[in-house]
């Protein structure tokens, strides 16, 4: 194969700016350009996602007769389109935050277990078992949630409602299984592996010297964790939780299947109802007309921006930590 036969497609437009690599032969030029081109294609895709979502969202937003940010209606295909995201934003944030509250302590417990409590030899195998949770597709969680978990949660909901109904969150009438709480628990299960695997990695980076120093001072295992491990891993755990939050915010099918959507904002998390950005897109897309699709894209754009901010913050925290270590 001569150097000239290597044609790796990609953008050829970058031409002469390539560095003089090695012998400056044609093959080197082409290969350098194609790798660089791929990297640029990747950036272009991200940019294109933002651009095209905006381009398709703007006409729908202009036609919207209601306030997009504060309205709770969703009738984009009516003669006079009226739609707003307040209810979607509430349901999305509420279910994701509840999922985070449930998942984070458990995930960190798992990470501690694998890093410090489990037998050394089993550690990687146990990590793999937890990662299996991530290998299960979300539609299977949805099916499991709908067929198996919702009926179970219905009795839990009744119990909480009967015995703790005085707590506003558990109040309201006609509680049931297809509630925000159920969706939150399913989400929590789905984000467990990501939070625990990142926390585990952070814990494994704790300098051995710190751990041994704490042990030498007579610390118990818990005290070692509290004094040496947790302070070191704090920012790592925060960013792990935020990455989990990002995952929960965008999760679609499982929520769409588990939640029985209903209009209106309600703090009664045991009542069937609520809706999220992603679930709303999945559930109403099939029936949406032209304006409806535009409205769904507009709501997807909001979801995109929210997850982008959450993910960037998480990465920024990780990056800052790297500078200190």
């Amino acid at each position: 194969m001569t150097s000239d036969t290597l044609e790796q497609g990609a953008t050829g437009a970058l031409g002469g700016r390539g560095r003089r690599l090695g012998t400056g032969r044609m093959g080197d030029r082409l290969f350098g350009i194609s790798t660089r081109g791929s990297a640029i294609v990747l950036l272009l895709i991200i940019a294109a996602i933002a651009v095209f979502l905006i381009a398709k969202a703007v006409p729908a937003l202009k036609a919207d007769k209601a306030n997009f940010l504060t309205s709770q209606e969703w009738n984009p295909d009516a003669a006079e389109p009226r739609f707003g995201i307040l209810q979607l934003a509430f349901g999305t944030l509420m279910s994701s935050l509840m999922a985070l509250i449930i998942a984070t302590p458990v995930a960190i417990g798992i990470a501690l277990f694998i890093a410090f409590y489990s037998p050394r030899r089993l550690a990687s195998g146990l990590g793999y078992v937890v990662d299996l949770l991530a290998a299960v597709p979300s539609v299977v969680y949805g099916l499991w949630g709908l067929q198996f978990f919702v009926p179970k949660m219905a009795s839990v909901a009744n119990f909480l409602h009967d015995d703790f109904g005085w707590i506003p969150l558990f109040g309201g009438d006609s509680v049931g299984g297809q509630s925000l709480l159920t969706a939150a628990v399913v989400l929590a299960i789905m984000i467990l592996p990501i939070i625990s695997s990142i926390s585990r990695e952070v814990f494994l980076q704790v300098p051995q010297a710190n751990v041994e120093a704490a042990l030498a001072l007579g610390a118990t295992r818990w005290e070692v964790i509290r004094m040496a491990v947790l302070p070191f891993g704090r920012s790592g755990m925060v960013s792990a939780a935020m990455l989990g939050l990002g995952r929960a915010l965008g999760e679609t099918i499982a929520v769409a299947m588990v939640l029985s959507t209903a209009a209106g904002i309600s703090l009664h998390i045991l009542r069937p109802g609520g809706n999220t950005f992603a679930a709303n897109i999945a559930n109403t897309f099939g029936m949406a007309g032209n304006m409806g699709r535009g409205a769904l894209i507009a709501s997807g754009l909001v979801l995109f921006v929210i997850t982008l901010i959450v993910n960037m913050l998480a990465r920024a925290i990780v990056a800052r930590r790297k500078e200190f270590v």
Binding site: L53, G246, L249, G250, G300, L303, T307, V310
Partner: peptide, 8 residues
């Protein structure tokens, strides 16, 4: 991009 919601 890793955190991009699949529906987006």
């Amino acid at each position: 991009m890793t955190g991009l919601p699949s529906i987006v």
